[in-house]
Every structure is written in structure tokens, then in C-alpha cells.
Design a protein around this nucleic acid. Structure first.
Length: 218
DNA sequence: GTCCAGGGCCTAC
DNA sequence: GTAGGCCATGGA
């Protein structure tokens, strides 16, 4: 069944509707959100984004200039505030060092090159790099997260211990080379994960329960 | 009180 | 190269 992934996508898409991810007004807001939401519930990030905006700090220049202690204070409710302060600072320092603080310059290169560079930064791992590439840079780079691995393991598509790059490649090999599908597929995966496919799943009314092997062998 | 959330880094084997 | 510990808040 070569089109299994697309089949799942159609079902999720029909069930959840268009998500128009990532919810952000600027490229930089996507990047900040991607770092702040690492292992953190999005609702805890929303407040911080709002506060950064009202403090007029949600720009490369703003993050570059703000004192570490003030930044830590503002992002506190997103958790891991010490390391996230360092991560945000590391990114804007890199952006100024290499690209005069310009995201347009930064993104105006082949995606493989951008990805390697993002991964070399402290605090940016594969998921954050791919989120930035896809939702801030509009590059086709599929985002894999804990939900993706859990869901497609339960659906019988992959082993639960499959590594990040292998799982990413499976998606990129099988879905159409379409930016909108890349964005929406990951978005509805997260919706499914949040609403149904949690660590302790809520299988009643799950839109893909018919194809879920995990339910059957439970 | 316990578990979990749109990860990633560091250290030990 | 990988398993385990660590980082921390807020909601269920």
C-alpha cells in the first residue's frame, strides 16, 4: 500500500480542516516559537510570544539587545527558561554574525545548506531546524516530532525506535513535493496527537482508528 | 501528588 | 552510537 501516508493525510485533513500553520505574523516569530515550544505545551508559549510582542522584543534586533536576565524573566512561563534564553541569544548572534541580522539573506540558499547550519547551532536540533525551514523559510523539509513517531508506530507504519532522519525520509519519499501538504500534514499530525494519540490515548472517535493496529493488539 | 507537553544537550559506557 | 539524566513551567 504505497499511498498509506497520503491516505492518512486525507483522512486527518478532512477531519481537522485547514490549519494554516504556523500561527505567526513573521518569520522571526516562527523561529522564536519553535525554540520556545521545545518539549513544552504550546499554550505556555502563547503567553510568552504575546509578552515579547508587547515589549517590542519579538525581532532579531530586540532579542539581540535585551539583557539575558530580562529575557529570562519574560520567557519564564515557557519553562526551561535558562537554556531557552541561551538558545534565542545564540540564534540572533549567529544571524548578525553571518547575515547582518537578515532572515531574507539567511534563507536565500539551498535548504540542505541552511539545515546543516541550523543544526550546528547550540539549541537547534532536527525538529526545530525543520520547523524553521518549513514554516519560516517555506522550504519543503518535513517536520518529525514525538507525535509523528508515536502515531505512525501505532498505525503500523514504522518501528517505534526509528530515528529522526529515517522517519523524515519516509515522508519526503512518499508525499507529493508540495509545500502546502508538508505544512498541513505536520499540523494535522499534531492535532491528532493533542486530541487523541497521547501517551495515554483517547481512541473514542479517533479519525484513524480504523487503520490503527495498536487499538487491535491492545 | 503524578504525568505530560509541537526537544536538545551532555555524560557515561 | 546510544541510553539515561537534566532542564522547568502550567494544566489535566
Amino acid at each position: 500500500m504505497p499511498d498509506k501516508l497520503l491516505d492518512i493525510y486525507q483522512k486527518l485533513s478532512a477531519h481537522f480542516g485547514k490549519q494554516n500553520w504556523w500561527p505567526a505574523e513573521t518569520q522571526f516569530e516562527v523561529i522564536v516559537g519553535a525554540i520556545l515550544t521545545q518539549n513544552t505545551a504550546w499554550r505556555n508559549v502563547e503567553k510568552v510570544i504575546k509578552d515579547l510582542k508587547s515589549s517590542e522584543l519579538l525581532t532579531p534586533d530586540g532579542i539581540f539587545r535585551v539583557e539575558d536576565s530580562e529575557l529570562t524573566d519574560i520567557i519564564r512561563s515557557a519553562g526551561y527558561y535558562n537554556s531557552k534564553t541561551k538558545k534565542l541569544k545564540a540564534f540572533v548572534r549567529f544571524l548578525y554574525d553571518g547575515y547582518s541580522g537578515s532572515l531574507d539573506l539567511f534563507f536565500d540558499r539551498p535548504k540542505e545548506e541552511i539545515r546543516r547550519e541550523l543544526l550546528s547551532l547550540w539549541g537547534i536540533g532536527p525538529e526545530t531546524a525543520d520547523s524553521i525551514l518549513l514554516y519560516a523559510g517555506n522550504k519543503r523539509s518535513f517536520v518529525v516530532d514525538a507525535y509523528t513517531r508515536r502515531i505512525f508506530n501505532r498505525l503500523g507504519v514504522v518501528d517505534e525506535n526509528i530515528n529522526y532522519d529515517e522517519l523524515k525520509k519516509i515522508f519526503e519519499d512518499q508525499i507529493p513535493a508540495n509545500l502546502d501538504i508538508y505544512k498541513e500534514f505536520h499540523a494535522v499530525i499534531v492535532m491528532l496527537g493533542k486530541d487523541y494519540c497521547k501517551v495515554r490515548p483517547v481512541c473514542k472517535d479517533c479519525p484513524v482508528r480504523e487503520e490503527c493496529l495498536w487499538i487491535k493488539k491492545r
